[in-house]
């Protein structure tokens, strides 16, 4: 929706814009990929963007598993949702960097960690590509149409607040960013019928039970804080956890933050008040 709102904003300024997500089937909260192209003339190409001018990263933790600057044009800019100063964000290269704590903005304004409207405000500030007024208009239109005018207005406000809080600077990258390796079998290696067969590959395990390779812990905004003293070992949290990332130990529960998505059910259901959600 953010990519669409950006396109709508650019279009309202008289430009031509296309926006599309990588058409996946991701659930809410999962990392997704979306592209926007803005030009003065009609954009014909219907392909993914391989050499972006700007890269927007909605989740700072993705920097650990995705080389976000891959293909970034010379002089391009990276915008990261982060509470850090631009100089403190390391994306592996020397680059123009902008940061905004979009999650905090979203929590303050929307009361939920939906950062896509905030980040658009930040993008306007950082790039000057589209004015904040157009961004607000674009959000009112796209979010408003989809979720109702009240929600549209709130999101437009989030964009404005984020705009005001965005920091622009530079960062000098030191670490080496690496995208996680993918298993890409050729026609000889792929099991017939695309059968899910248990295999260990250079990119890790595939097949039955292999989703453990997917560390969903990056999705969370809040995490459970657990008090062993209060815990009665009733096992409710263990049953209710949708992820199965609470493990039973002899006299306590283990919370696996590599997988916790931060839903908060465990805290909500704990009869002994032994779990609370913190940021």
């Amino acid at each position: 929706m953010a990519a669409q709102a950006l396109a709508s904003s650019a279009h309202s300024e008289g430009g031509y814009a296309t926006a599309f997500p990588f058409f996946g089937a991701e659930r809410r909260g999962a990392p997704v990929l979306a592209f926007t192209r803005i030009d003065e003339k009609r954009v014909y190409r219907k392909t993914q963007v391989y050499e972006p001018d700007y890269v927007v990263v909605l989740d700072e933790s993705l920097l650990d598993t995705v080389n976000v600057v891959e293909g970034l044009k010379e002089g391009g800019m990276v915008l990261v949702n982060s509470s850090k100063q631009p100089a403190e964000v390391d994306v592996g290269i020397d680059v123009k960097m902008a940061t905004v704590d979009a999650t905090s903005v979203a929590l303050e304004v929307l009361k939920q960690p939906a950062t896509n409207s905030s980040i658009l405000g930040a993008l306007s500030k950082a790039t000057g590509l589209v004015s904040i007024e157009s961004i607000e208009k674009g959000i009112l239109q796209v979010f408003g149409d989809r979720l109702g005018p009240k929600i549209g207005e709130k999101n437009a406000k989030a964009a404005r607040v984020a705009y005001d809080r965005t920091l622009v600077g530079e960062s000098h990258g030191k670490r080496e960013l690496k995208s996680a390796e993918k298993w890409l079998p050729d026609v000889k290696e792929l099991p017939i019928g695309v059968a899910g067969v248990p295999m260990s590959t250079s990119a890790g395990a595939v097949g039955p039970g292999s989703f453990v390779e997917n560390k969903t812990g990056t999705w969370k905004v809040f995490r459970p804080e657990y008090d062993t003293e209060k815990c009665t070992m009733c096992n409710f949290c263990w049953f209710y956890c949708p992820e199965g990332c609470i493990y039973r130990k002899e006299d306590h529960m283990d919370f696996d933050m590599d997988y916790c998505k931060g839903c908060g059910i465990c805290a909500n259901e704990c009869p002994a008040d032994a779990i609370r959600m913190v940021r």
């Binding site: 899910g196 067969v197 039955p208």
Partner: peptide, 20 residues
């Protein structure tokens, strides 16, 4: 002998399957 038949398949694997 645990396998899966008919998994939801993203673009990375379909061309190879069709070729087969």
């Amino acid at each position: 002998d645990v396998n899966a038949v008919g998994v939801f398949t993203p673009p990375d694997y379909v061309m190879e399957c069709r070729w087969q």
